[in-house]
């Protein structure tokens, strides 16, 4: 495999805004002069199902899908989903996850418990793990809906992309009335 490619996986639950976050990432990589490919599954996954979005950038990207076991960064929007997709990563990969839980159907119905101690289990396998209080920080920034942008800020620090490029990508992709809060949320995530 071409080592010059960076493989990012965004995982969570349908409806959490994963598609927009992956679009902002892709936009930033293109603006920074890289080749970019991204892939995800729409349709059934919109109905509260598990969602994975693949974003790859580098000099020349072929497959739009990250090969199994080749993920460099896992960007988790929900804790259980973050844990579910660890097998897509390579040893030593980075995990940035929102400390946020959404109960799957079997848990809602009382047939299973939400798996305990997931952060510890992730940390044991991948020590480069950052757990973010996305909702809490977004509230501080002014709107709980900016949680994804806090996360994006935290992920951005692990990527060699200039501040101005991130700013330009956010300006293009985020609706005008929400831009100020999102820029603030992004900056808060970047400080983590």
């Amino acid at each position: 495999m071409d080592n010059a490619i960076t493989n990012i996986l965004l995982v969570g639950v349908g409806g959490q805004g994963i598609l927009l976050a992956s679009e902002i990432l892709s936009e930033a990589f293109m603006l920074a002069g890289f080749d970019v490919k991204k892939s995800e599954i729409h349709g059934m996954s919109q109905r509260g199902g598990s969602v994975v979005s693949h974003v790859r950038f580098g000099k020349e990207v072929f497959s739009p899908v990250v090969p199994e076991g080749q993920g460099d960064i896992l960007f988790g929007f929900e804790l259980l989903e973050t844990y579910r997709y660890l097998s897509l990563l390579k040893p030593g990969a980075t995990v940035v996850a929102n400390d946020y839980k959404i109960a799957p159907p079997s848990v809602l119905l009382g047939q299973a418990g939400y798996p305990p101690a997931l952060p510890e289990k992730i940390m044991a396998k991948l020590p480069d793990f950052l757990l973010v209080d996305g909702q809490g920080l977004a509230l501080k920034a002014g709107d709980v809906r900016a949680a994804n942008t806090v996360m994006l800020g935290a992920v951005s620090k692990r990527l060699q992309i200039a501040d101005a490029v991130w700013q330009q990508a956010l300006e293009k992709m985020v609706p005008k009335k929400a831009l100020e809060i999102n820029l603030k949320a992004f900056a808060m995530g970047r400080e983590l």
């Binding site: 996954s45 919109q46 989903e81 390579k90 990969a93 159907p105 079997s106 798996p115 991948l126």
Partner: peptide
């Protein structure tokens, strides 16, 4: 051969009616 990161099985999250 490359190392595989194995995670324990967790409850599935199939799509559902809203």
């Amino acid at each position: 051969a490359s190392d595989v990161i194995a995670a324990e099985p967790v409850p599935p999250r199939p799509p559902n009616m809203c």
